[in-house]
Design a protein around this nucleic acid. Structure first.
Lengths: 236, 236
DNA sequence: GGTAAATGTTCTCTTACTGTTCTCTATGAG
DNA sequence: CTCATAGAGAACAGTAAGAGAACATTTACC
């Protein structure tokens, strides 16, 4: 999917992000790839974006993040991707050559009940979350350490992040998050909202994933992270 | 499913990707298969794409990736990754009036194991799915009647429906669907694809949720529904 | 033998990718 | 508001890569 240069640049950005948490500037990338001009970087970045490996905000300095890495890096086809564990199983019988899969009878395993604490507006911030409306059961492999709760998403502000109105999001309680994470943020101790977090120095930006909504920037102390998005469910 | 040549080429691409992370060019593939012309490679690639083994962007250099491998070298079921399901933690004290919910200890309930049958390209149509790569457990409340299986989505063609690359979709096996449903459709008994179904008289349209992809319309008998999308999971 | 799909080859044509230089503009700091 | 800086992008040149028509051969199969 990627040419050598595109691959090199993606790896560089990824490493940089892992180490410093801050994406490199065009000039830094230029030096890293040993080029004399940022223009080449610009095109590589465009290519990476087109191929779905990075996401970025145009005209914003260092505003990019790695969305996925090439399969050769982690996942692989032999083994499932690094998302959660899974239970080994022997299923699979002889399938007709073009017949759709025919799973064996579904075995039952342990799940975990997670409370749905109410709704949260992904769009305009609304009421905080405190009502425990019902519970959903969650596959254990999605749960890492820590305490979790679920929220039902209202609004369309995160639509470009693939989070739609009516989706249920699984949140891990935490008071810290990295720039780029999608979090439940409490603003001025009053409005809770689901947004992507950006750290800008001491300030914090909460950005929606919908051009119709503006990014809101707050000074230190005004935003408190209440949890980080770890999984999403949608029922059709 | 694959001819000898197609198989050889697929293996070569797969190896190359594993080793260097960069897909081979047509010329490199030509040399690897000991051919004198790229043209043959072009046809083999087209065949592999049609059959759903690779995904690619047309007119882009080295823009391809292996989506799945033939059953003969079917992915082994890797070892399950153990993950502590519970580890008590001490979290901050004093709760403000809008303090986030503090769920009671998570009760354990029954879940259901559903096999992930492989990947399906949401973008370029691909072929039938039958590799059982691993399993996920699914909350029982998402399962209705009938038989289910899961697929991992590759590609971005359903992006505007909030289905992203890497998402796992839960499919209920069925051979019927209503107009507007998102289905796994098998075209000409060959290519399987995840698309939105539209019935137009006797014909059937498969439409992507991404303006970059065209809606494809087929005459009666060419499209067979293999399942209907009933839920979606995403892990962050 | 007849047919269709898969292959192998040659050639041509177009487009993509890379490296570089320069210019222009949006943004954020002060 | 002004300035310095990072990002956007046009233009040029050379190389690399993909698309596909045309035709001959081979293979599998009825």
């Amino acid at each position: 999917m990627l040419t050598r240069k595109q691959y090199e640049l993606l790896m560089f950005i990824h490493e940089r992000l892992k180490e410093t948490g801050v994406p490199p500037s065009f000039d830094e990338m230029k030096d890293a790839l040993d080029l004399r001009s940022k223009s080449g970087i610009h095109r590589l970045i465009t290519a990476l974006e087109e191929r779905g490996f990075i996401r970025r905000l145009p005209n914003r300095a260092r505003a990019m993040e790695v969305v996925r890495l090439p399969d050769s890096i982690a996942p692989g086809l032999g083994a499932p991707r690094p998302r959660g564990s899974f239970s080994p199983e022997v299923i699979e019988g002889s399938l007709g050559k073009l017949e759709p899969p025919r799973p064996a009878p579904e075995p039952v395993v342990q799940g975990t009940e997670i409370p749905v604490m109410g709704r949260i507006a992904a769009g305009v911030p609304i009421e905080a979350i405190q009502t425990h409306s019902h519970s959903i059961s969650v596959p254990p492999e999605l749960l890492g350490k820590g305490e979790h709760y679920a929220l039902e998403v209202r609004g369309d502000s995160m639509i470009e992040a693939g989070i739609l109105d009516g989706d249920t999001v699984l949140i891990r309680r935490t008071d810290s998050a990295d720039s780029g994470d999608i979090v439940v943020a409490l603003v001025d101790e009053e409005e809770a909202t689901l947004k992507r977090l950006r750290k800008k120095g001491a300030s914090i930006a909460l950005e929606a994933a919908n051009p119709a909504y503006e990014t809101r920037i707050f000074g230190p102390g005004r935003v408190r992270v209440q949890g980080r998005l770890v999984a999403l469910f949608r029922q059709y």
